[in-house]
Amino acid sequence: MNKLTIIEKHSRILRWTHWLNFLLLLLMMWSGILIYWADQAFLPIPKLWAERLHLNNRLAEGMGWHFLIMWPFTINGIIYVTYLIISGQWRREKYQSAQKVAYFLVPLLGAGTIISGLAIYKPVQLGWLTELLGGYRMSRYIHFAVMAGLLLFIIIHVIQVIRHGWNNFRSMIAGYEIEKD
């Protein structure tokens, strides 16, 4: 019988949290843009985009989604990072640069969205945090910039994944990579 050697690359927990995170982040970015539309302080959203993508006049809805999804997004993120630390997966030397960036920079950016988000969400109760980040307006800048950083990462990440091919991509779905002799 034909036997293959496979490498168990990504555990089940890692795969589930990765894909759940992707969908939750998508919802966070979408609802965040619905909120941002109401006061486009840093970068104007082109009118045509706003109309075509129905991003206009949906502030209340955007806030509703943003403050609901923030919970599973945060919890899922904590599970993901805790798992990386406990399992020691982040220490693997085999990993290519893309994965190293993913493991080190992305959790930091993720934490950045949550911290700067809290500074905007509760600027009185967490007033010390808002002031630490340079005030309310600066917190909004930071929140936006960190989000843009995550978006940039996603774009680079997707390009890297396409370049690495199916064997690599499959490992994030089924967990294994087939070893080439």
Binding site: L4, I6, E8, W19, R91, K94, I173, A174, Y176, E179
Partner: peptide, 24 residues
Amino acid sequence: MKLKKIKITSRKLRYRLTTSIFLG
């Protein structure tokens, strides 16, 4: 940390991939 390596038949592997895609 070392990655675990195992030997597996291609049939079993196909089944594993199909299950994962289905669940996904």
